[in-house]
């Protein structure tokens, strides 16, 4: 890391209030492939933390372990100081491929999480409607996923995750299946969402620019077996104009520094 770059992003400050804490987590697939090794990382409450690394570094694996969708081979994950034994109501997942049920309309898809919690139909539909409106899909409640564009489908996926009112939102490359222009719009919307919702976001991405643009913290993972290479906090002011971020010198330098660091993993 160059001395110059250090001006623009800092090493992590100690986390005082963490929503999610990953302790010594390791993951071995089928007894032979080590995907993750000795991962120790805290995710500060109310902020967005990205997991970034070369492909195959286990970032999605780590996210799914936090979600309780995959068991860790060793170590543990604490959410609100309680160990994770499986999926829980305080976490909600946004899927890369949206994972919408094609046979259910937008309303039923968004209400699915509430339905699983046994909330009465009229109540869950009311909650779902307000979240559908919030992601800008009012009027599309009765449509089916195949009638929507990719961007709209991911809004449905997001509304579904927001509807269950979870503390922690886990997002697995949520914008990778939409086109570049929609993605930029989503990234801007995400910043607004973080500012408004005060929830904890854990965000997996393979795009350096995206990570630097949206994150309060970035956890850099090394190539397989995934270990934590570095944790950085881009020194970017996020209060103002979202377009200003991409022109911010700290943005450009952080992107470049991360690229220089990740480049070493690519043959």
């Amino acid at each position: 890391m160059t001395a110059l770059a250090h001006q623009f992003f800092t090493e992590p400050s100690p986390v005082t209030d963490c929503a999610v804490s990953v302790r010594n987590v390791g993951k071995v697939y089928a007894g032979v492939v080590t995907a993750l090794e000795n991962i120790n990382v805290d995710f500060p409450r109310g902020q967005l933390t990205s997991l970034l690394g070369p492909s195959g570094c286990g970032k999605t694996t780590l996210l799914k372990i936090i979600a309780g969708l995959l068991p860790a081979t060793s170590g543990e994950v604490l959410v609100n100081d309680l160990p994770v034994a499986g999926p829980g109501p305080e976490r909600a997942f946004v899927f890369q491929d949206f994972a919408l049920m094609p046979w259910a309309n937008v309303l039923r898809n968004v209400a699915f999480g509430l339905e699983m919690r046994g909330i009465a139909k009229s109540e869950r539909e009311e909650i779902a409607r307000s979240h559908i409106a919030q992601v800008g899909l009012a009027g599309f409640e009765a449509r089916y996923p195949h009638e929507l564009s990719g961007g709209m489908r991911q809004r449905v996926g997001l509304a579904r995750a927001l509807a269950v009112n979870a503390d922690v939102l886990l997002m697995d490359e949520p914008f990778s299946a939409v086109d570049e222009q929609i993605r930029r719009k989503f990234q801007e919307d995400l910043l607004t969402l973080i500012a408004r919702e005060k929830r904890t976001f854990i965000f997996v991405t393979h795009s350096i620019e995206e990570a630097v643009y949206v994150s309060d913290r970035i956890v850099l993972l090394s190539a397989r077996p995934g270990r934590i290479a570095q944790i950085i906090e881009p020194a970017i002011e996020r209060g103002g104009d979202p377009d200003a971020i991409r022109r911010h010198p700290a943005y450009l330098d952080t992107v470049d520094a991360i690229w220089q660091s990740l480049k070493t993993y690519l043959e």
């Binding site: 089928a30 007894g31 309780g68 969708l69 995959l70 068991p71 081979t73 499986g86």
Partner: peptide, 8 residues
Amino acid sequence: KALREKRP
């Protein structure tokens, strides 16, 4: 299966 660890 996704939730259960597979040990040889």
